[in-house]
Structures are given as C-alpha cells and as structure tokens.
Computed example of a mutant assay.
Amino acid sequence: MAGGKVVTVSDDEFDRSILQSDKPAVIDFWAEWCQPCKMLAPTVEELAGEYDGKVVVGKLNVDDNPQTATKYGIRGIPTLLFFKDGQVVQQLVGVKSKAEIQKVIDETLA
C-alpha cells in the first residue's frame, strides 16, 4: 500500500493548498472518533498513491478545522469533496468503494 501521499489540510492552508492548486483535489472530511472514517482511510491512502502527481488527496479533521467544514456544509462524515479549479464539482458521503471514488476522480480529471 502506498503511503505518505495524503496531505493533511487545515483551515489555515485550505485556500492555498486546495482552492489555488493547479490540480484537481479530493478532500476527506473526517474525525478521530469516526469509525466509518477509519474504514475509508486505507482507500484514501491507496488512491493518493495511484493518483500521485495528478490529483491532490487531502484529509481535513473536522474537529480541528471547523471553519472549512462549516463553509462547505459538512453534516455527516466521512464526506469526500472533489474540487476542480477551486470549485466543488462532486461530493460523496459515507464509506464508498474504491471503484466508486475512482470513477468520480476520473470524471473530475476528464
């Protein structure tokens, strides 16, 4: 399994690292206490390795960074938001299969 490709994102650097990125981005909104988030984490790690250089894959802890979570109306976690050119283009809520997430990433890249 590929590791180390997932970027930890905070409220402070969200605009710079995600909205101003020249690459599409996928952000996993999660929390330490969230079991489904922990189930999704290995899939997010794998995708970060597979799409390295093409897509920014980040994780944002909603407990530590409530500003960004509130701004995007995150009500349930895990939530994956897909960004392109600084705009949300797609959203997935809950634990999804790797294939489902890849499909959305590929659509975002198209």
Rank of each mutant, 00 (worst) to 15 (best):
A2C: 02
A2K: 05
G3D: 11
G3Q: 11
G4H: 08
G4R: 10
K5T: 09
V6S: 06
V7D: 07
V7T: 13
V7R: 12
T8A: 14
S10C: 14
L19M: 15
Q20A: 07
Q20R: 08
S21A: 15
K23F: 03
W30F: 12
A31I: 07
W33S: 04
C34T: 09
K38S: 04
M39T: 10
L40R: 00
A41C: 02
P42Y: 03
P42T: 06
P42D: 07
T43V: 11
A48T: 03
E50W: 05
E50I: 08
E50A: 15
E50V: 09
V56W: 00
G58L: 08
K59Q: 13
N61I: 11
N61C: 10
Q67M: 15
Q67F: 14
T68L: 14
T68P: 14
K71V: 14
K71Y: 12
Y72C: 12
I74C: 12
R75E: 14
I77R: 10
P78V: 13
F82L: 05
F83P: 03
G86P: 06
Q87H: 04
Q87T: 08
V88G: 05
V89W: 00
Q90T: 01
Q91L: 08
V93G: 04
G94H: 09
G94S: 10
S97M: 05
S97R: 06
I101W: 00
V104C: 01
V104M: 00
I105Q: 03
I105R: 03
A110W: 01
A110T: 04
